[in-house]
Nucleic acid binder design. Structure first.
Lengths: 227, 227
DNA sequence: GATAATTATTAGGCTCTCCTAAATAATTGA
DNA sequence: TCAATTATTTAGGAGAGCCTAATAATTATC
């Protein structure tokens, strides 16, 4: 495998690049906690190793080789998170930081054993999909809670955050993957939405609702929604 | 905690220093797979941080602070080995290399959880004692198999080696911690000894017998042995 | 107790990965 | 379109941790 630094870069590029097309130097720098100038230098190096495609001022993308490594790291990371949570009982707001180290250290064999011990799970404790050993990632079929209409009920699919405090906040409301919730009201002009989670009502901000991804499970799918 | 490099140095110093008094530069260099000149430089740095006592041309020793870190690393290492073997089913000849990485990565909390999951084991899969979280190491009460007299039966306490091939060799004879064996003959002039392990006889070299530590469990302790 | 052999240290350098400051390209908006 | 802003890159440099070659101290040997 590559070294820790390279793995971190490739993973970051993958994650920035997932939705967008091509990752920007500054965004990468922020994610990695590194100065933009330093990132430029490293990108040249990664390009020389054919792990990324890099054109000055144009951003980076992963080559197949680079993507393979990135997915491998991501797989280890999420597998480790799941393991730490399910087997060692670590709370979900602490698994990320720990896994950040484990991802660089797990051998293929140990990762495979952890995978088997867990029963080949498909997601990490935050609901993020665990890439397969072959590097396949199931497509996501969820939408941000913020996009749900009032009266709709949905199941939490995943929570897109690594911030421990944020995760504890969600936990305090009982919001975890697989939990069902219902949108009661949505205040206009980017105002808060009120939701019901396991019998309790909460008001949450738009920003929060943007990071919670759900799958609508309302009984009346199409008719309910006027075009 | 300290960084990986420092942890490795301190652990190496501890291990070289356990039996002997003060570790030599060359021996450390060999253990670390580094040139002696490089070790000298690092020792100065460690001394400046009050982790070791170092005098030019005189060797190094650990300070209390240094020993605390060394024991901490050793604890993580051996705990990881035990975990890898008992929980994840890794064969004993593979746990060392893996643990060499884990030791730098396990948080206190995770180590404690692993410890509890294992039922607070006292040794690693090779029989080496696991230092307590407070840094206590139980004194060893074993002797090299090579020092046993013929006819004596002993129980394997630990195997002092990290070499995978060597461990597989021992495994092929059924030699593991807790296993009982009997010395049948010892050839003179550093010749081989023949031993019986679970009904099977084997001839092993002196060098091998030096690395297997046992506790004598023969029925007749004192009378059998003429002064 | 002098010389040879061993062991350890200094000197000078290299690579990796990061930094800041300055320069340049790209983008935005007036 | 041109100026201002923002994003990115170049230039020059620093610290960590390693290296080899040369030198110095210690230990062993006669």
């Amino acid at each position: 495998m590559a070294n820790k630094t390279i793995e971190d870069y490739l993973k970051a590029i993958y994650q920035v690049d997932v939705d967008q097309d091509g990752a920007g130097t500054t965004e990468l720098a922020e994610r990695l906690g590194i100065a933009p100038a330093s990132v430029t230098g490293m990108l040249k190096k990664l390009a020389a190793q054919d792990l990324v495609t890099y054109t000055r001022y144009q951003g980076v993308g992963l080559t197949n080789a680079g993507r393979a490594i990135a997915l491998d790291v991501l797989r280890r990371h999420r597998l480790a998170e799941r393991y730490l949570a399910d087997v060692l009982g670590l709370p979900w707001d602490r698994v990320h930081d720990e896994a950040e180290e484990w991802e660089h250290v797990l051998s293929d064999d140990v990762a495979a054993r952890m995978d088997a011990a867990l029963g080949w799970p498909s997601t990490d404790p935050h609901g993020e999909p665990i890439p397969s050993a072959r590097g396949d990632v199931p497509p996501l079929a969820d939408t941000p809670l913020a996009r749900l209409r009032p009266r709709h009920t949905a199941r939490v699919a995943r929570v897109s955050s690594e911030d421990a405090e944020f995760l504890r906040y969600l936990g305090s409301m009982g919001i975890y993957p697989h939990v069902a919730l219902t949108v009661l009201t949505i205040a206009p002009f980017g105002g808060p939405l009120t939701i019901e989670v396991s019998g309790q009502c909460h008001a949450i901000g738009q920003g929060v609702a943007e990071r919670i991804f759900v799958v609508d499970i309302s009984p009346l799918p199409a008719a309910e929604e006027p075009a």
